[in-house]
Computed example of a mutant assay.
Amino acid sequence: MMKRQRRQQEIVALLGEGNFRGIGDLAQSLAVSEETIRRELRVLEASGAVVRAHGAVRLAKVETEGSFAARLQRHADAKQRIAAASVPFVADGQTLYLDASTTGHFVARALRDHKRLTVITNAVGVAAELGGRNENRVLLAGGELDYEYRACFDTTARDYLALFTPSLAILSVESVNLDHGFSDYHAGEAAVSRMMIARSRRTMIVADRSKFDRHGTVQIAPLNGVAMLVTDQPLTPAYAEGLAGVEVVIA
């Protein structure tokens, strides 16, 4: 299973964004048969990660976020580096909020050796990664489950999360934009993120370079409205100016 997941990640990486490539080209690049490529593409197509047409394939256009499984595979290497760079800022015994993003999921995995954490989350995957380990406490918001995000964003979830004041909130976003700051596509996720930024003593945004210069739908915070940004590539001069006063860590 792990070999297949790795191969699917390699296919996504080869496709880049928006470019069609032939089945034979992918098979040659990965040194596998065309039938193997077709089998993996059937899985990726079912998850919404790719689009096939006449013997060729490309990544699905990122107009919305797509399913959690598809997003988990996008830019996975960058997200893992960002997660590894963020965990030194989390202390054993700390109380933190982790969001339902795929980057947040990678952060949860990277935190598995930490001890006595109190983790507040609305994400089933985060709870599964950190619950029952090293004396961690996991406080999971309930409500109606959004199956694509594997998380709860409704009024029940927000009312529960509003009870807490974590020392650190770790969030990702779908857009980092000079004009609109940090924003998202999912209105429920954005509402939860805004609330947890307001209730936390410190906020860390974890976002890879693909999120920059995109246009989100719902604003979460202005660029100077958070304490830290962890990303995977150096900032352009314009973003360095816009993020003046924000601690920036390059993974």
Rank of each mutant, 00 (worst) to 15 (best):
Q9K: 07
A13I: 07
E17H: 12
G18L: 07
S33V: 05
E34F: 03
E34C: 05
R39P: 00
L41W: 10
L44I: 09
S47C: 01
A49I: 06
V51Q: 13
R52K: 11
E63T: 15
T64I: 10
T64E: 14
G66I: 12
A76W: 12
A78P: 03
K79L: 05
A83Y: 12
V87D: 06
P88T: 11
F89M: 14
V107L: 13
R109E: 15
L111M: 15
L117C: 02
T118G: 05
T121I: 04
E135F: 11
N136H: 12
N136R: 00
R137E: 13
V138L: 01
L140I: 09
L140W: 13
G142F: 12
G142N: 10
G143N: 03
A151S: 14
C152R: 02
T155V: 14
A162C: 01
A162W: 01
L163T: 11
L163S: 10
T165Y: 07
L168I: 05
S172I: 04
S172A: 12
S175C: 04
S175Y: 06
N177M: 01
F182I: 06
A187Q: 14
A198K: 11
R202K: 15
V206C: 14
V206K: 00
A207D: 07
S210Y: 10
R214I: 03
H215L: 10
T217S: 14
Q219A: 13
Q219N: 08
Q219W: 02
Q219G: 12
A221F: 02
V230Q: 04
D232G: 01
Q233K: 08
E241G: 06
G242D: 01
G245A: 08
A251F: 02
